[in-house]
Design a protein around this nucleic acid. Sequence first.
DNA 1: TGTTAGCACTCCACATAAACGAGTGCTAAC
DNA 2: GTTAGCACTCGTTTATGTGGAGTGCTAACA
Lengths: 345, 345
Amino acid sequence: MNGLELDERKTKILEAIIGNYLETGEPVGSRTISKYTDLNLSSATIRNEMSDLEEMGYIIQPHTSAGRIPSDKGYRFYVDRIMEDKEKTVSEMKDLMIEKADKMELVLKQVVKVLANNTNYAAMVSAPSYHRNKLKFIQLSQVDTEQILAVVVVEGNIVKNKIIDVRENLDNETILKLNMLLNTNLNGLSLEEINLGMISKLKEQAGIHSDIVSEVLDAVAEAIRIDDDLEIYTSGATNIFKYPELSDSEKASELINTFEEKKPLSELVQETLSDENNTGIQVYIGNETPVQAMKDCSVITATYELEEGMQGTIGIIGPKRMDYEKSLNAMKTLMAQLDNIFKKT
Amino acid sequence: MNGLELDERKTKILEAIIGNYLETGEPVGSRTISKYTDLNLSSATIRNEMSDLEEMGYIIQPHTSAGRIPSDKGYRFYVDRIMEDKEKTVSEMKDLMIEKADKMELVLKQVVKVLANNTNYAAMVSAPSYHRNKLKFIQLSQVDTEQILAVVVVEGNIVKNKIIDVRENLDNETILKLNMLLNTNLNGLSLEEINLGMISKLKEQAGIHSDIVSEVLDAVAEAIRIDDDLEIYTSGATNIFKYPELSDSEKASELINTFEEKKPLSELVQETLSDENNTGIQVYIGNETPVQAMKDCSVITATYELEEGMQGTIGIIGPKRMDYEKSLNAMKTLMAQLDNIFKKT
DNA sequence: TGTTAGCACTCCACATAAACGAGTGCTAAC
DNA sequence: GTTAGCACTCGTTTATGTGGAGTGCTAACA
């Protein structure tokens, strides 16, 4: 026992401990392992090994004379092994039924619901962000004597509307001119390219109608901001009540509040999207998570991609003793189907 | 004591009991009342009266030798008195800060958040339903070689967009014609007036482009359906953890799930909107509620109205021992402000 | 040297009991 | 009709005891 590396036996024992704990949720003792594994070792020997494993930080004793439970490090070891093993195995899980719908919003709501129901954990999904998209099309139209409607379309066919109040009645020609002005100048530009210089130039050309230009640009800005902000859908938050270790008032309240606010979840989205070694699926165990409220949970996230390089994030949040294998599989299956749906669209 | 009517003294005592219980949340005993009120009665006398009140069903003993707590009937009595008294008193509560925003959705999200934060209860608000609204405006525009965008505006400036795929490239003139066709035929019609006859007439006139008309009409239909369905916003669901009587796993889970699903809340909306003696504000105590999950709660709802007869519902959900006075006031203040915001628009 | 049986020890979980106290209902006196 | 007094009830808290699961350690064994 060199104290640094896990030999094969220790590995087996550690896996047995974690496996058993995932099933029962109870601290697991040496005698259990002695029978549970095919190592044919007495409980005493196991005890010695467990003592070592504890020293190495893989397992923890809640108190003297209780069994051991996995530490975050233990979980990490366990998960890493699964990820290695299963990287190639194509999951043959039954298809999660997702119907194609024409509105992205509906698809996502469906996805997140399916995910939550299938895993019995909480689930979230962020709408893809459109940062680097180009403006496709702007249209102003008269709606009322004192109101005009601005429609802004960016690549990916994201549409934003804004009603603009005008004090005087604009005639058709003026609107036509404004339309022309806006479209010839802005179409094809990425949202970053519409900078201050461009804006003031536009306003100048618009003359007395510069305020309308302002408002239209507001709408354009909003088209980003909102999506950027918190287009996040969640489902199954109440699933956490199925796991006693998360059910006490304090923790439950904090967690569920996180899901209700949705804001904090964007941290998770950021983190996931900015993953360097983008393997597609990531697991955050306990304190590894970027969202403080989830420090007693494990979080599985993945990035899905739409045709034009826009990506969104999908996540499962459950107790640390979640069924990683099943959850990872569910995630993969879902990703495959999302690809199907979106790429075909 | 005739056993049917509450004399003045009983009324005072009952109010004292309820008042005290609302503050402390603990069963209240005779001695407390003896001191709490200005009746100058000994605890023994109070006990006799309380015994009567219990027999009449206004209060309940959780167990022998505990104080009394209000029954649903007791709460009902209490609330009815408040409603009578305060019907006229203009609430001079500090304004709840609501900023006017151009998008209805944002206003409502803001409203519900403010309400939840101010009351420390859970809050919900339903978007107004647009049944009887008239179509204001339809616009088709070319977005791509194979896609056109349909924008539908109904009264109240609700805007719906739909991207329509077309196989062949439509020229400008065709689109202009279609626009003309749709607008001249449909503008000003209520959504109910667009019936099958109208539809087939349109399709006929559209000739080979009848499928586009179909899709546009789908968008129109959708403009209703979605709003009708469950445009319900909620906030502060986790506030229920502030009240121990609602915080145990079972109840909390059920309640919060109701808020997450949102669907069940539409019951509440229906019920509120279909109130015959429409006084504006309603209170459901315990089992009076139409939503089963809230049988241990009290619910305050109100109907707000937009200019053109569209109405939506607003609600507060809290423990039965909620601060009715404050909550009712908050509700009234909010209604006034909503009126301000919407009527001015 | 690694493995195992045996044993004392620890500590949680659970049950039981005791003390407490808030509050009641009833009776008798005012 | 009101009140003081008192026995009684019952939930809450605190103390106490017991059982059992599991450990660490030691000594014996292969």
